[in-house]
Design a protein around this nucleic acid. Sequence first.
DNA 1: CCAAAAGTGTTTCACTTACACCCATGA
DNA 2: TCATGGGTGTAAGTGAAACACTTTTGG
Lengths: 229, 229
Amino acid sequence: MAHTYAHPRPALAVDCVVFGLDDQDLKVLLIQRDLEPFAGRWALPGGFVRGDETLDQAALRELGEETGVSRVYLEQLYTFGDPARDPRERVVSVAYYALVRLSDHRIQAATDARAAAWYRIGELPALAFDHRRILDLALARLQGKVRYQPIGFELLPTKFSLTRLQRLYETVLERPLDKRNFRKKVLGLGILAELDEVERDVPRRPARLYRFDEKTYRQQARDGFLFEI
Amino acid sequence: MAHTYAHPRPALAVDCVVFGLDDQDLKVLLIQRDLEPFAGRWALPGGFVRGDETLDQAALRELGEETGVSRVYLEQLYTFGDPARDPRERVVSVAYYALVRLSDHRIQAATDARAAAWYRIGELPALAFDHRRILDLALARLQGKVRYQPIGFELLPTKFSLTRLQRLYETVLERPLDKRNFRKKVLGLGILAELDEVERDVPRRPARLYRFDEKTYRQQARDGFLFEI
DNA sequence: CCAAAAGTGTTTCACTTACACCCATGA
DNA sequence: TCATGGGTGTAAGTGAAACACTTTTGG
């Protein structure tokens, strides 16, 4: 930091890996580029950082502008700075990731020129730049994180069944979990409140509904409690 | 990424949090600034990224230039982008951290103008910019990481006693560990080779010496083995 | 023989894992 | 009555944590 301030400056961008969850699938939000390079290719939403905003703000703003998705909690992932990652000139990109409820963020039918869409993990198109690498890192981080932070709960309806919650974790982790063990574990955490209510209009025995007991969770988090699935 | 490429560009820097370990202490490598702002204050080594180098390369280069420390494994920590973190103009900084053996990196008596020195964690001077925040984050990350990666072994002499190794972990984690459990654990990992040698010239029963069995460790790492202290 | 650290095992407890059957409901 | 998922308990194994005394050496 003790140098002069005259330097060739790389451009600074942010990119967002937004995972969307519905009952079946884990998806990623992509946009279709309309400019070169990689015109027509799918890419992560993102763009350049403005002079007066934090990196977090830039990520949120670009995400909103390009996809209409707002009010998400973005977490910084990693900064990619390979000089050749943009074929034209140097662009350093700070990557963010988030996990949201798909039903809260239906993409509006492309009213503006640019298309945005949710793609299933595992059915991804070729991506622009090094975005595939960014996405892979984000997925690994998400799967690591979900095991010791109760991320998923916010992604369900207020009232949900344990099976629903289990499916959520299985979707994110991409592997099956044992039903009895899952229930033991998650109920043992004490952060679910059992409701006097069950599913309705299902062609089978209706499941008991629960809600996330945020108050208890916060308290436990304060006391250094370790969440783990 | 679909915008035009004309933007006011923040300057891009890297900063390095280098932890040094000796038998007693965990220290951090700091340099004394000779320029405004914060002239005379201590700061993390770092500087601006050049046009043709990766971020990792920039961090290594700056660290070498400012402190003489080289051949360390730097890991990216976090990117700090608050518009006001530099009082003059906007500087976004990608922070790195590393853990090295203190005895390998004695700082040469300041032959050039700028001073570099190791400071004990817990006896830190006031730091320039937001470097205190960066340092705190790095320490938290180090303490988290050391528990599931055998970072520390490289920091000891080739031959070392188990007590020495335990002190190392206690120093980094800043808490005492149980002797018997520690030995059970670390020997159970199978990555230490027992030598036919003991300490010499100690005024007590001499301890058996071990060496880090890197070959076995690499093999286990390949097989998805999980290290944990 | 004294000081100082080296070295050593066992028990308890908590948690993870594997595993199979009956139940309630709507169609 | 059938199909569908809802709901439940136990046993075995693994690993973490707590804990105290004897041994060896140099001075």
